[in-house]
Simulated assay, not measured.
Amino acid sequence: MNEKQVAWGDLSLFLAVAREGGLSAAARTARCSPATLGRRMLALERALGRELFVRHDRGYELTAEGRRLLADLEAVEAGIGRATRAPRRGERPLVKISAGTWTTLRLLDALDDIVGTPPDVRLRFISAEAVLDIAHRETAIGLRNRRPTSEGLAGRKLADVEFAPFAAPGAPRLWIKVAADTPSALWLDAHVGEEVSCEVSAPRNSLDLALAGKGMALLPTFLGDAQKGLRRVGDTIPELAHEQWLVTHRDDRHLPEVRRAIDRLCRVLAPTRGGS
């Protein structure tokens, strides 16, 4: 298809002619004269280099090429309809929230408090240690460990974060190391020798192993203190302390569904010592 010669307007007229089976009926749908439609269909065939219709007294009958084009265009038309349709009555708007492993776990525990009663927002949690691009709408809300500095972003400080070692009663005093590019994992790598219980690649697995009594995990205190099967087995680590910020796009924060999610997240996270 020559994109410079074929416009969607001509393809829309083709759909009308193909569905109505003739120029006169299609002209009423397309609101143009049959003569204009006939010229446009001939120009479309020449632009595509295909014969789309068999023209006879009974109307315009599609050729095999025309039937293939009709099927392709109907698929495109359906996709455009799905992409641009208004939300159905009662459909909850989607809000994407990105956070690190530990904050995501806390948010999942408080899911009912965030979606509302009755639920009026649909949440998508994106658990990622990397920082997603809010300016390009990779996420609507990000929980981060520093104040936003990029133009167009707004932030609200929630709490301070501290990390400490946690273990189950009777567990060996051996670290569970995490092979990841996070501040806590890098601290373990720099300060813990070879006397470790094991290593994992996902931070969440260090919590699972600590709960199973396999060693000590380095956890944010808001998470470790909430685990009935764990207790602190050491002091907090000053160099891992940081702030927690809720970050949004300056424009998107005024959307009703985003505003509701922000207010609820602040109630869930601000009163406690949070983590990211």
Rank of each mutant, 00 (worst) to 15 (best):
R58H: 11
T272D: 14
G274F: 12
V115F: 03
D113K: 12
C32N: 07
G38E: 08
S24L: 14
L108W: 11
K177N: 13
D10M: 08
L107V: 05
N2G: 12
H56C: 10
L94V: 15
T36Y: 08
G66Y: 00
N2D: 15
R58F: 09
W102Q: 06
R204N: 11
T104S: 14
E91L: 09
E20V: 03
R68A: 15
V178Q: 00
P148C: 09
L269C: 13
R40M: 04
W102K: 01
L143R: 01
G21V: 02
R260L: 15
E74C: 05
R260W: 09
T101H: 03
A185R: 00
L223C: 03
A7V: 14
L69A: 04
S24Q: 15
L94F: 06
A217H: 02
P118R: 04
P238R: 08
K177G: 13
A64K: 09
E77F: 08
A99H: 05
V196L: 09
W187S: 06
S276Q: 11
E195T: 12
V6D: 02
G275T: 10
L240A: 06
A159V: 01
G224A: 06
F125A: 05
C32E: 13
D109T: 12
S12F: 08
W175T: 07
V196D: 00
E74Y: 01
E243A: 12
R250Q: 14
L207I: 10
V115T: 13
L174S: 10
R253F: 03
P87T: 11
